[in-house]
């Protein structure tokens, strides 16, 4: 059965542009808060979207973040066109990062983003093809 959606939207993300990094996450967090979802759900969704957004900006050419909110579920799809992730298990390891100096100078590139997403989600899947792109599928249960 398909649950009725309370909200859905797709946000474009431009690779390499850090100027407005975090805006999508903030916008969704406010929407989730206004819908009356608990603090913990707001926090988890915000972190998952923030890290997805930053990875597209840091590594890909362009991407989209699609957010769907149902009464009992938040569904986040972050898909990009970019280099893809060659070794997903290695990328998931805390501390592994290929971030360049410019990114590291800003305090990104700790190699924590993907594992933060995993900790915040009830279901997390990475689909990636080298030289094509990456698709993160994130589910957060609300109950």
């Amino acid at each position: 059965m398909v649950p009725t959606l309370k909200y859905k939207n797709t946000f474009p993300v431009e690779g390499g542009n850090f100027d407005n990094a975090g805006v999508i996450s903030l916008q969704i967090k406010n929407i989730i808060r206004d819908m009356g979802f608990p603090d913990d759900i707001q926090r988890r969704a915000a972190i998952a979207i923030y890290e997805s957004e930053l990875n597209i900006i840091s590594y890909a050419r362009a991407g989209n973040i699609n957010v769907r909110i149902a009464p009992h579920l938040i569904c986040i799809d972050a898909a990009d066109e970019g280099p893809g992730i060659e070794d997903i298990d290695r990328a998931m390891k805390d501390g592994y990062s290929t971030a360049n100096d410019r990114i590291r100078e800003m305090g990104f590139g700790a190699g924590m983003g993907l594992s933060n997403i995993k900790k915040c989600s009830d279901k997390f899947e990475i689909i990636s093809e080298t030289n094509k792109g990456t698709h993160l599928k994130i589910l957060i249960d609300i109950n």
Binding site: I47, A110, N116
Partner: peptide, 26 residues
């Protein structure tokens, strides 16, 4: 490290940092 702060800091905290660029605000 922004991912560390995002994951581990709490609401109402003061954030002590040497990062001064615009991304700290979000």
């Amino acid at each position: 490290l922004l991912s560390d702060v995002i994951a581990n800091s709490d609401k109402g905290n003061v954030w002590i940092t040497r990062q001064s660029h615009q991304n700290i605000v979000a």
